[in-house]
């Protein structure tokens, strides 16, 4: 039903309906933001990725071939934009935890202080994972996607994804164990 609804909205948008795009954007904006946020580790960069992704959807939806689901396509754009931004930041800033801390201390959209602190801890842990492991971990653990869907998004073989997920889990769990 959801995929059919996406298909209908895409057709309407391509026929010129801005309202259809707005509905698509509203449906996916939160998922886009949170996937980006877990990938990049702070609000400011997640905001940039979310904007870029929504603009890309607006401009490139005509290229969407429906070979995969629309949501997979959206995750693919979000993931690749996130990884691009991470690479750009690494080149520019030599990403360190101090750098991340600076970013985390800037403007945020989390209302509750306690939630904000918890999220910071999660982000810190996620950012310690290599990018590819983090991507698989986020898509599987948070977005609860199947390996087949993640394979469509990342272009990686399922065996590689499982291995990456295993190593990510090992680091995350070890990390938790170390802190107790």
């Amino acid at each position: 039903m959801s995929e059919q609804e996406d298909k209908r909205l895409i057709e309407e948008f391509l026929a010129g309906s801005e309202a259809a795009y707005n509905m698509l954007a509203r449906k996916y904006r939160s998922r886009i933001y949170w996937h980006a946020r877990r990938m990049v580790g702070n609000h400011e960069d997640a905001d940039e990725v979310a904007q870029e992704t929504l603009i890309a959807i607006y401009k490139k939806v005509k290229d969407f071939k429906a070979l995969s689901s629309f949501s997979t396509w959206v995750y693919k754009i979000t993931s690749s934009r996130s990884l691009n931004l991470i690479r750009k930041r690494k080149v520019k800033n030599f990403v360190t935890l101090d750098f991340l801390k600076d970013k985390q201390n800037k403007e945020d959209i989390i209302k509750n202080f306690e939630d904000k602190e918890k999220l910071k801890e999660v982000e810190k842990r996620l950012m310690k994972l290599p990018d590819k492991q983090r991507e698989v971990f986020v898509l599987r653990h948070f977005e609860e996607l199947s390996y087949n869907e993640i394979s469509e998004i990342t272009g990686q073989a399922i065996g590689t994804l499982k291995a990456n997920y295993f190593h990510a889990l090992k680091k995350i769990v070890k990390e938790n164990g170390d802190e107790k």
Partner: peptide, 10 residues
């Protein structure tokens, strides 16, 4: 431990 990571704050 893994589930505790799944926070989506307001």
């Amino acid at each position: 431990e893994l589930d505790d990571l799944k926070i989506t704050p307001e």
